[in-house]
């Protein structure tokens, strides 16, 4: 395989978390949590509110120093590394935060260029502009979105722009924090499709926090369930369904879970066929929104 894989890390575990503990004062969010993310998979992370899904992600990407435990990404231990070493690992992943977390003083295209400028100062301006432009296009944004400021974009477009920035360095590993939350069903389905497509072309490994059952069924290879301060189960949805844990049963066999599961077989096929069409519709709808918002901006 010619993908940009790492030679230093020959085993197939991209993220390895061992015995992780996170505490905020008296309250323990994680105790003795273990998790492994395999190369090339889309791992969904689910759990009730307050079970520490985001804290887990923040621990892995180094925004939160855990009380105990080991975290290794690409086989490199992440805790207690100095800044330069951590930077070398950091450039190999991309993170999409919940609200997009775009820099509000920069345009979308400039946002995409920030990581490129930070790590590869020698790139000339023309190449930078071109890279930003095709990354914006790859994220499914219309051409006129590049020179727009984040405040002029809708929530769904901000997420796509955030994804474009997360993909700026051609990462091997992508962290997504509730990418489809707050999107309409068409937009969410299009986003799922986009992740699958990017995974296929770029060989991504994806760590995906979500509440969206449709997303779980549609794109996740494995699902990790967070409860009782640890990962209580990890596996394909079929494997999880075979388990006898009340929360898992209620989660996947509740009315919404059944609806998502029931639609899956049909949906999977429908999405493959309809996906491009839906995406085109979504793109046009969003393009209309940009224009409307642009006009509003002028009026203001």
């Amino acid at each position: 395989m010619k993908r940009d894989t790492d030679d230093r890390c020959d085993d197939d575990i991209v993220v390895r978390v061992r015995g992780l503990a996170n505490r905020f004062g008296e309250q323990a969010v994680h105790e003795n949590l273990d998790l492994e993310v395999r190369r090339g998979e889309i791992l969904g992370v689910v759990g009730g509110s307050g079970t520490g899904k985001s804290v887990l992600m923040r621990s892995i990407i180094g925004l939160q120093t855990p009380a105990e435990g080991e975290i290794a990404v690409f086989g490199e231990p992440m805790i207690g590394r100095d800044e330069t070493e951590a930077k070398n690992v950091r450039r190999r992943w991309g993170v999409l935060f919940q609200g997009g977390a775009l820099f509000s003083t920069l345009t979308v295209a400039e946002n995409v260029q920030v990581p490129l400028r930070e790590y590869y100062r020698r790139l000339d301006q023309r190449l930078l502009d071109e890279i930003a432009t095709y990354k914006v296009a790859m994220s499914g944004l219309p051409p006129e979105a590049g020179p727009k400021y984040p405040s002029e974009l809708s929530g769904g477009m901000k997420k796509r722009a955030g994804l474009a920035r997360a993909l700026a360095l051609d990462p091997e590993l992508l962290f997504l924090d509730e990418p489809t939350a707050g999107l309409d069903p068409i937009g969410a389905a299009a986003f799922d499709e986009l992740i699958l497509e990017l995974k296929a072309t770029m060989g991504l490994t994806v760590f995906l926090i979500t509440h969206d059952l449709d997303t779980l069924y549609a794109i996740c290879d494995r699902v990790a369930v967070l409860a009782d301060r640890k990962v209580i189960a990890i596996g394909t949805i079929e494997e999880l369904l075979a388990l006898d844990h009340p929360w898992i049963q209620e989660y996947f066999n509740g009315p919404r879970g059944r609806a998502a599961a029931g639609g899956d077989q049909d949906l999977g096929r429908a999405e493959r066929e309809e996906g491009p069409r839906l995406r085109e519709q979504q793109r046009q709808a969003e393009a209309g929104q940009v224009q409307a918002q642009g006009a509003e901006g002028v009026a203001r």
Partner: peptide, 15 residues
Amino acid sequence: QQVAAGDRQPQVRPE
């Protein structure tokens, strides 16, 4: 093919 699909006139800042 993927990058060719994203080949557009680059525009980074608003006019």
